[in-house]
C-alpha cells in the first residue's frame, strides 16, 4: 500500500499543478446569484402542506395513513396484520419508542446481518424531515431511525412523519440537515424506468412504502 500511496502522491501534485496551469488565463467568475425559492408558500404545519405531501407520496405509490399519536401502534399493527399472513416481524432501531410497539412484532436491530435483515418482513422508522413538493422522506440515522441498512434490505418500510417535520421545498429540508450524518432521501418505493422508460415500482429497495402522517395531539 505504501507504493500505491506514493504513486498517487505524485499524481496529486501533478493534477493540482495541471488545474492551476489550466486556470492561469481564467477570468474570475461573477457572483452566484440565488434567486430561487428557499421557502414555500404554504405554512408549516398547515393542512395544505400535509395535503401536498400526501398527494405527492400517493403519486409515487406510497400508502399514506393520517393518524393521531395514540393511533400509531394500531396503524402499524394493521399493516402487520395484512402482511405475511398476520405474522409480520418488523425491525426497529433500539431507540424506537416502546409506546409505538404495541400489538405487532418488533425486532430490535443490534447489528443484524444483511441475511438476518432479509428474513424480516419490514422496518419501522421515524424520519428527520419530509419534503412536500417532491414527496420525499429524509432519514439521517437520528433517533428512532437506526442505521441505513434496516430501511433497505427488508421489503417493506413504514415511516413515521410528524406534521411539524414537513417542509415544502428542497432548500428548507437541506438547511435542517447535518452533512456529517449518513443521509438518505426516499421518494416512494424503489423504482426503475430502465425498460422502455416505463416506471416499475419496487426493485432492490423496499417494494412497499407506508407513511404514517401524525397529526399533533
Amino acid at each position: 500500500m505504501s507504493g500505491l500511496t506514493s504513486m498517487t502522491g505524485a499524481a496529486r501534485a501533478e493534477i493540482l499543478a495541471r488545474t492551476r496551469a489550466a486556470l492561469t488565463r481564467a477570468q474570475p467568475p461573477g457572483p452566484v446569484v440565488r434567486d430561487y425559492r428557499t421557502t414555500g408558500d404554504l405554512q408549516l404545519g398547515s393542512p395544505e402542506l400535509v395535503a401536498l405531501l400526501t398527494d405527492r407520496l400517493v403519486d409515487y405509490r406510497a400508502h399514506v395513513h393520517p393518524v393521531g399519536t395514540e393511533q400509531i401502534s394500531a396503524a402499524i399493527a394493521g399493516i402487520a396484520a395484512a402482511h405475511a399472513g398476520g405474522a409480520a416481524r418488523f425491525v426497529v432501531a433500539s431507540d424506537f419508542a416502546t409506546a409505538w410497539r404495541q400489538g405487532w412484532g418488533a425486532v430490535e436491530d443490534h447489528g443484524l446481518s444483511p441475511r438476518e435483515l432479509d428474513e424480516t418482513d419490514g422496518a419501522v422508522t421515524t424520519c428527520r424531515v419530509a419534503i412536500a413538493d417532491t414527496g420525499t422522506l429524509v432519514l439521517d440515522a437520528g433517533p428512532g431511525q437506526g442505521r441505513r441498512a434496516i430501511t433497505l434490505v427488508p421489503d417493506l418500510h413504514i415511516c413515521l412523519v410528524r406534521h411539524d417535520q414537513i417542509v415544502q421545498t428542497v432548500p428548507e429540508a437541506l438547511r435542517r440537515l447535518d452533512a456529517g450524518r449518513p443521509i438518505t432521501f426516499i421518494s416512494g418505493p424503489s423504482a426503475t424506468s430502465d425498460i422502455e422508460l416505463a416506471r416499475v415500482e419496487g426493485v432492490h429497495g423496499p417494494r412497499i412504502l407506508h407513511v404514517l402522517l401524525i397529526s399533533p395531539p
Binding site: R34, Y36, T38, R56, Y60, I131, D133, T134, G135, T136, R148, V170, P171, L174, R175, L177, A179, G180, R181, P182, I183, T184, F185, I186, S187, G188, P189, S190, A191, S193, G205
Partner: peptide, 29 residues
Amino acid sequence: TFSDLEVFLQLLPRSSTGERMNPYTSMWT
C-alpha cells in the same frame, strides 16, 4: 458547499428521469 445540493437535487431528477425526485439519494461523509 453542502447547501449547493439544494440546487442540484432539484435540477437533476426532473431533468433526467422526469421525476420530482428520484426514489433514493444517498449522502455519506
